[in-house]
Design a protein around this nucleic acid. Structure first.
Lengths: 188, 188, 188, 188
DNA sequence: TATGAATGAGGCTTCATTCAT
DNA sequence: AATGAATGAAGCCTCATTCAT
């Protein structure tokens, strides 16, 4: 799996093929199939790992703050920083599901649920402390954070050229402004 | 191009291949290459068309409203409705750029700029009428709308299963709540 | 035909295709087939023309000299210079026949015979004046000149890289030495 | 490779294609690509083999003679005989480099250099024994032998029809006369 | 005489997966 | 538990030639 990641980071997500992987992993192609059922399976495992790493990053960032609004900010920033330092992982998280032919493995589903519960717990605390509007549903907000944030990162990745024509600021400032608007939108 | 779209809608974006396309279009494979330089070229044309359609939808929705904040809402709703009725177009708009090996053709760049200018003009009006916070940069906000909205739609598409476990409401309500939060975040 | 030549010179012998040719010639592809039966036919015509040009060059060079040995030298030099200034023509002359699937048209056969007779006449004069060994057959020698010379030029073209590793002199000097050895071999 | 040669011999150099090759070799098309990177690669390997065979032929012929001039004759004859019995190999040796789009692989370069050194060593001996003119450069002469000889063989191949109209003798006699003239030109 | 859209066979290459050893 | 040779379907693209107008 480390090899698979290395290849993807080095040459792009699509560059991964079983030949290269076997060669780089120092094993025969057939051996690969003893550990993974298919190429899809490799990517699924990679994705699970990427999500774990992301969740760890979330947890670590949240622990640094007491205020639940700050924790929400921290989650969004964690997503940004994670994207910055682990573009591949971000891509795996963002695009894995897009490929419709990839089955959602049980492990992935589990991870998804953990994520959800994790973020929801933060939001619940914020609601309990009346820091965010009471009518907001915490499950929904959790998904929204996920969606918006990934959307923003994806935008920065795919439209960077176009954006550069209009916006001189750093991506970091741009993302900060997004967070501000979001927080402004939910806070009491 | 209609055939290409039909195939993509029927069998998924990746199912498009030149053989099938030719067969479905009732022409020889070689003939295809009289009109398109490559498969990439087909997709690029499809994408341009999808963007045009989307922009028309924007314009139509906006025309229905006078208040600039309502117009901003309308743009976000237009995106949602467009996604609902033209999932393929939405995918083309959202994912075309992701494939790094696809060159951004001049036509596509032009369309991107038109979009940007179009939405910016709406935001400018909102700012001029002091409906949104004065410190918000209109170029940035335009991109944010784009990014957030696509992120939300993508979320609904890829995480629909997971979301259904937690949220009973319709996607439409969910999206409405997203818009509300966004508007809340930017309005004066 | 001028167009065909231009394309070949610009982009190499193999780059010629009927599409490009038609476009460059400012006519429709179908029209091309009114004047030429096939692509082969185009090349055959081109080759005939190339041979004519070469023979003219021979005649011009020979006319500058009185001594038949000098005239033989002149023919060999004409071949060299022709190659230098009309590499495409040289290639056409040298390689046309190689492609087994190209029929030898009557026109081409005629040209070949003219060549032969032309050079033989020079050799006959040399023999008559006892400048070359009496046992040499003039028909044979004519063919030999043709073969050797083309072989040398081909060598210079295809092995230039390898030759440069061993020989510092100019191609011109190299070719001169070849001529000297040849003349040395035939003269009385 | 034997299959590839067989096809080329049977149907001409250009008839080789990967489909036919695979079928004839009794393997799947994909399997071919385990052993060769591309069609080009197949031809390159074939060419290397052809050169090896030719060099062996040279060595064998030379060994039969003591006198360096006889050895030079022997090399030229070896080339002739090789052409007679291995027309395909000869073509590969002669024409491989002509296809400009074929990269000169390292192996081919090595073979080219071996050839050169091999023949040069014979010429050096001839010079040392003062059997050929002292002013002749051995590197140059080696290339000349190569060029002339291939030119002559090519002539016999492509102009056989035309030659038959003028020369009644056997190709063998014709080639012998060429050798005589060449030797006459270089010997002391 | 001219057009040019349409053809379709032909050709190269990739790669996930299998299976006998 | 490991190997790695073999597979073959799948995919993209080219281009000489034809033919209805």
């Amino acid at each position: 799996m480390d090899c698979a990641e290395a290849i993807m980071i080095r040459e792009g997500m699509d560059a991964l093929n079983m030949d290269t992987l076997a060669t780089n992993a120092g094993m025969a192609k057939g051996t690969l199939y003893l550990y993974f059922n298919s190429k899809e399976d490799v990517i699924a495992h990679l994705t699970v790992r990427a999500r774990k790493t992301l969740m760890d990053a979330f947890a670590k960032e949240i622990a640094k703050h007491e205020d639940p609004l700050d924790q929400i900010r921290a989650i969004l920033w964690a997503n940004f920083n994670y994207y910055r330092t682990n573009k591949l992982h971000h891509d795996l998280n963002a695009f894995y599901d897009i490929n419709k032919h990839l089955d959602n493995t049980e492990a992935l589903r589990q991870m998804g649920m953990s994520f959800q519960q994790f973020i929801v717990s933060v939001i619940e605390k914020a609601k309990a402390q009346q820091r965010i509007k009471s009518h907001i549903n915490e499950q929904e907000l959790s998904f929204m954070m996920w969606g918006m944030s990934f959307g923003m990162l994806q935008l920065m990745e795919t439209k960077s050229g176009l954006m550069a024509m209009y916006i001189q600021r750093e991506n970091e400032v741009f993302y900060k402004n997004f967070i501000d608007i979001f927080i402004e939108g939910i806070k009491t």
